[in-house]
Amino acid sequence: MMSKLQIETSTMEIPKVKSENRFLNFWRQFRKKKPALFSLYFVFLLLLTMVIGPHIVPYDPAEPNYNRLLEFPTLDHLFGTDEYGRDILSRIIVGARITLSVSVSAVLLGTVVGTVLGLVSGFFGKWVDKAIMRICDVLFAFPDLILAIGIVAILGPGVRNVIIAVAFFNIPSFARIVRGATLEVKEMLFVESARSVGASTTRIVWKHIFPETIPVIIVYFTMNVGTAILSAASLSFLGLGADPSSSDWGAMLSMSRDYIGSSFHLVFFPGLVIFLTVLAFNLLGDGLRDVLDPKTND
């Protein structure tokens, strides 16, 4: 009996807490999601590192020191040194800039293209929708990394091409998500009412539908940055990404794999920051989704 007596909360008279400020309202709810909040702090820390990293490093990350090769962590070198005697902590700090900027710009590129495709696909429907979605299906059919490897193989290795490759496999997921949101928003009464005052298609899509999809985009953007860091690192690991001698986290992992048996710290610390960063972006995305887009959660 109980199960059938479900109550639709919309019919009920629950006092709404109205706040004058959307951001304050959001922040009040977000604050309660502790894992996401800590992740946010972590992401801020990373961003800070990106900006001031090169100025605070204890050692020159590129300076070899042949007296202290493959040293385990000590007070001098908190994360130890690598096969050229370079300070691993300094390399990680400096590497944040290249690693993060590659993944963020890749996802950003994927988001922009994917969002446009998703809006067009969802709003116009019919053959446009079918065509775009079938292309996305094809892209989806390839495992992410294989696709990226293929693209880099065609374009040649290098940071710019890694960005393009990672962006490429972000496109279909954004296109689909935005299309889904568009399909939902398109049926809403305010879209019809905009049309009834004579709004053009561009105006409707841009001014009325797009703003409604922003929360979903923010959520998936955050989550995909995590995945993109992994992919970029994997490409670097395979030697297809950043210059192996650079302090890109993935490249660091790649270079140190020969020493995994003897000098575990060479692999451990870059691996750990990648792990923490990816986790932070995912938890942050989760928290944002709970607050911004409660529907997809239940």
């Binding site: 479900q6 109550i7 639709e8 019919t11």
Partner: peptide
Amino acid sequence: SMIFQEPMTSLN
């Protein structure tokens, strides 16, 4: 017993 406004939400 209770009946609601929209029976669809109270029937499985």
